[in-house]
């Protein structure tokens, strides 16, 4: 399966196993822009899988109202993560706080909002952004970003069944590109848990989402050219994030690279760095490096300069290791 078929498969299972679940968004009845919802309406009918008008704010509001009343499962789609901003009031002021504000009388834990994010090579300003840091700043919601089809299916099913509202960001560049063996059965991947993709001893490299493909290449390059052993970690869930997994790794390697596509300033990397320096201060052997997007609007023609690509990451890995060696 590739990423879009894995997502489609997870949605199919969710609709099949939970009669209260509904899937809606712009053009989802026809499969959506990326075909993630194809054939779902044919299978489950227009009452459960349907198109909405082009109203992100009301897609979120509809999901919140539906989930809060009946404890139902609302799976909404924001056609692009860049379009989430018109719905920001509903997400930040309604969705994330419904449980807290009502003294736990109500919650909208049945809400999952799926949305494609990230660079795709030619997306330009409004089809390329990674808005995760805006969302992680908001207590009350869970933010998830899978790196590939297998993790995506399990994480999406966990998200849909989670008792908290989840924003599920799908790296759109991988919808067709990433192909993995994905189990056909119903399975979940636990939220809030990172995954060590590769064990290593010299430096911890941390990322999430589609960007891990870049980081894998950077780790390969470091191994081949410099014999550096990288421990590569996929965070998977951004809030609440797996502090234990990351700090254990940094305590072992003494070095950390955090890399994400979103702009560096106030990116989620900053949160990771702040926590790691507090928890691992006496294990650190060199300054932590952030390798991130530039602090610019997402550029069209300059995308390849903007992106924290494999070479930028390779350089950073080399720098932290050399810096540690020079100090020893």
């Amino acid at each position: 399966m590739n990423l879009f078929t894995a997502i489609n498969n997870a949605l199919f299972i969710a609709l099949e196993t939970d009669p209260s679940s509904i899937v809606f968004g712009q053009d989802v009845a026809f499969g959506g822009v990326f075909r993630c919802t194809q054939n779902l309406q044919e299978e489950f009918g227009p009452d459960r899988v349907f198109n909405t008008p082009l109203n992100e704010s009301s897609i979120a509001g509809l999901a919140i109202g539906y989930a809060s009343m009946s404890g139902g499962t609302a799976i909404g789609e924001m056609q692009f993560a860049d379009y989430m901003f018109p719905a920001f009031d509903q997400i930040v002021n309604e969705m994330s706080k419904f449980r807290y504000r009502s003294g736990n009388q109500w919650n909208c834990g049945g809400v999952t909002l799926r949305s494609p994010c990230g660079a795709v090579g030619h997306g330009g300003h409004y089809h390329s952004q990674s808005p995760e840091a805006f969302l992680t700043h908001c207590p009350g919601i869970v933010v998830v970003m899978p790196r590939g089809p297998k993790a995506a299916k399990g994480l999406l099913l966990s998200s849909i069944r989670s008792k908290d509202p989840v924003i599920f960001l799908e790296p759109k560049a991988l919808y067709r590109a990433a192909v993995e063996d994905v189990p056909v059965e119903d399975y979940e991947v636990e939220l809030g848990k990172a995954e060590v993709m590769r064990e290593g001893s010299d430096v911890t490299v941390l990322g999430w989402g589609g960007h891990l493909r870049v980081l894998e290449q950077a780790c390969d390059l470091s191994k081949e050219n410099d014999g550096i052993s990288c421990e590569l970690i996929d965070l998977q869930t951004l809030t609440p994030w797996d502090i234990e997994c990351v700090t254990n790794s940094v305590n072992k390697t003494g070095k950390l690279i955090v890399s994400h596509e979103a702009p560096v300033t106030s990116g989620f990397g900053a949160e990771v760095v702040a926590t790691v320096q507090a928890e691992c201060f006496y294990s650190l052997e060199s300054p932590i490096q952030r390798v991130c997007g530039l602090d610019t609007p997402f550029p069209l023609v300059f995308e390849k300069y903007y992106i924290p690509d494999k070479l930028k990451n390779y350089e950073a890995i080399k720098t932290v290791v050399e810096s540690a060696n020079n100090n020893n």
């Binding site: 009301s58 979120a60 509001g61 509809l62 109202g65 009343m69 109500w106």
Partner: peptide, 29 residues
């Protein structure tokens, strides 16, 4: 911010107008 689950009162909402899409979701439910 006042609510009552048992009595189907979905509350006061601090943001002007924000309760209306939520209400539409209630109608949908």
């Amino acid at each position: 911010h006042m609510y009552n689950k048992e009595h189907n009162f979905f509350g006061g909402h601090g943001i002007v107008g924000a309760q209306v899409p939520v209400g539409t979701g209630l109608a949908f439910a």
